[in-house]
């Protein structure tokens, strides 16, 4: 049986068809992620955080080890990296390492090197006190509930809710000591820590560029882009050929009709 010879145009048709099929999924992915990235602001994608364990693992995002914990009655103030938690509720903002935590009459005072953060028992920030004497190393209380600070400039106390500080080296102070928080609390905080780092728009950009799939992902997207360019050219050529054939056909038909008359 004689094998049918395929013309150059036939090859182009076939290539156009099969390349189109082969990169259909990638084009779909590029189109969907592209539309989402275009509307990133209105969809607030930079504020939506990825919670998927699989994706967070792909990015190598881990919760820092050795969380610092301070127990205040039935509550735990835990610092993990630069984030602060009251039980498992995250306090907005990023913080320097905790120097200590003590309970005042109604509030929780968290001391950092240059400020004291006052929290309600619901985890709401009541106030940030930035006028403190020196760099804070420790915070504690005495039996009269006066607040003491051990600073680089010496020991100071305040018995008027942090309005003024007096030097005092004689007080019988119980300094705040860090403790290891319970394991279930650490697990829950670690989960919360991880799920508040990676914004959704970052992942979409990485999927769109192929970076999400590793080093080879970029080359796959590059290849798909080159094939798309080929499809655009081959598609145009095929359309032009069809157009030319149909115009030529109409012209010949008209010519035949004229000669028949």
């Amino acid at each position: 049986m004689k094998r049918r010879r395929i013309s150059a145009w036939g090859w182009l048709y076939r290539l156009h068809r099969y390349i189109g099929l082969a990169i259909a999924l990638i084009v779909l992915m590029l189109a969907v992620t592209g539309i989402l990235i275009n509307h990133s602001d209105s969809l607030q994608l930079s504020k939506r955080m990825v919670e998927s364990e699989f994706i967070l693992d792909q990015y190598g995002i881990k919760a820092p080890g050795d969380p610092l914990g301070f127990r205040i009655h039935d509550l735990w103030v835990v610092q993990m990296g630069k984030k602060l938690f009251l039980n498992s509720v995250q306090i907005p903002g990023y913080f320097e390492p905790l120097a200590g935590v003590v309970a005042t009459n109604e509030l929780i005072a968290c001391a950092f090197s240059r400020k004291i953060l006052l929290l309600s028992r619901d985890g709401e920030i009541v106030e940030q006190i930035k006028t403190v004497p020196g760099y804070i190393e420790k915070i504690g209380t005495d039996r009269n509930n006066a607040i003491y600070l051990a600073t680089t400039k010496g020991i100071y106390y305040s018995d008027d809710m942090f309005f003024s500080w007096q030097p005092d080296n004689t007080g019988d102070v119980g300094w705040a000591d860090s403790k290891t928080p319970p394991l279930d609390l650490i697990t829950s905080i670690a989960q919360s820590y991880r799920s508040n780092i990676l914004p959704l728009d970052r992942v979409l950009l990485d999927i769109h560029s192929g970076r999400f799939f590793g080093r080879w992902g970029i080359y796959v997207i590059d290849a798909a882009s080159l094939l798309l360019i080929f499809l655009a050219i081959s598609g145009s050529m095929i359309w032009l050929r069809h157009k030319f054939v149909s115009v030529r056909g109409r012209y010949r038909k008209r010519k035949r009709n004229q000669s028949a008359l």
Binding site: P92, G93, S120, E124, V126, Q128, K130, T131, F163
Partner: peptide, 20 residues
């Protein structure tokens, strides 16, 4: 606002604020 109260220093017609 990320806080419930803030402190300030007042002297005659002058007030001083330290804000973030």
């Amino acid at each position: 606002p990320g806080f419930l109260r803030t402190r300030y220093w007042k002297k005659q017609t002058k007030t001083v604020w330290i804000l973030d």
